[in-house]
């Protein structure tokens, strides 16, 4: 952040006091002066070389994979992230196939009848909500279209937003990012996913109740 500011002001040929502070911090950070200060080990938290960390080593070659064991900081993080790539590619590859063969359409059919009784919003909002499970941006765009076409009221819009906002892009995010934690889980992978889906409704119902009580006056001209 500080660095960005620095280059900006440099391009305008004006260097304020902040620019000099940034330069000094940069020099100290990369200099290695803070790497080993006796009695003040915590200073190494501001040293480039220390934060670069170490790769893990093959302590037990039979058990360790390419990440090794005991790695720290940037180097360990890099190798760990690299180790996730295969499962993310596999998950999204299959997700693409299931979507292609209509899994989303079937889910849409099943979801629609639940919307009116649980959330008080019309069934036609189902597509926007289902889409949100996969892509936050596409879901948001569909929601806006519905409101612009006056097919939903402002209250419907807020309830729909509540459903989408908590755990947005749930399925894609869970299988592309959450996958990093799958190997550590002590429960089947499906349980957190189902729980999140149920709680999306709980959150939206909570918002619906608040809108019907605290913000009752806001929506009197509708309906």
């Amino acid at each position: 952040m500080a660095e960005e500011k620095n280059t900006q002001s440099a391009s305008e040929w004006k260097a304020g006091p902040g620019a000099y502070v940034a330069l000094i911090v940069a020099i100290v950070f990369f200099s290695g002066l803070l790497m080993k200060v006796d009695g003040m080990k915590w200073l190494s938290a501001f040293d480039f070389t220390t934060l670069g960390g170490t790769f893990g080593t093959m302590k037990e070659p039979a058990k360790n994979n390419f990440m090794g064991a005991g790695g720290i900081s940037a180097r360990a993080g890099f190798l760990f992230a690299l180790s996730l790539a295969p499962s993310v590619m596999l998950a999204l590859g299959f997700l693409e196939i299931f979507t292609h063969y209509g899994a989303i359409k079937a889910a849409h059919k099943l979801l629609t009848p639940l919307l009116k009784p649980l959330l008080g919003i019309p069934g036609l909002t189902g597509l926007a909500l289902i889409t949100d499970l996969q892509s936050t941006d596409a879901g948001a765009a569909l929601t806006k279209e519905l409101y612009d076409a006056k097919q939903i009221t402002k209250k419907d819009l807020v309830v729909m937003s509540a459903w989408q906002y908590s755990g947005a892009g749930m399925i894609s995010n869970y299988f592309s990012i959450g996958v990093a934690l799958f190997t550590f889980l002590t429960v089947p992978v499906i349980i957190p996913l189902v729980l999140m889906f149920v709680l999306k409704f709980v959150g939206a119902i909570f918002v619906r109740i608040v809108l019907n009580t605290v913000y009752k006056g806001d929506f009197q001209d509708e309906q």
């Binding site: 938290a45 220390t50 934060l51 960390g53 720290i72 900081s73 940037a74 360990a76 993080g77 890099f78 760990f80 992230a81 690299l82 996730l84 790539a85 993310v88 590619m89 596999l90 998950a91 999204l92 590859g93 299959f94 997700l95 693409e96 196939i97 292609h100 592309s176 990012i177 990093a180």
Partner: peptide
């Protein structure tokens, strides 16, 4: 179709996961 999805997965792994995980490891170390 699988390959299209897998390609998206690779993009996510490299562009989203890797920079974020690296940052998180460094912050945790700080």
């Amino acid at each position: 179709i699988f390959v299209i999805g897998a390609r998206k997965g690779f993009q996510i792994a490299i562009n989203n996961l890797m920079p974020n995980v690296l940052m998180a490891y460094v912050i945790a170390e700080i």
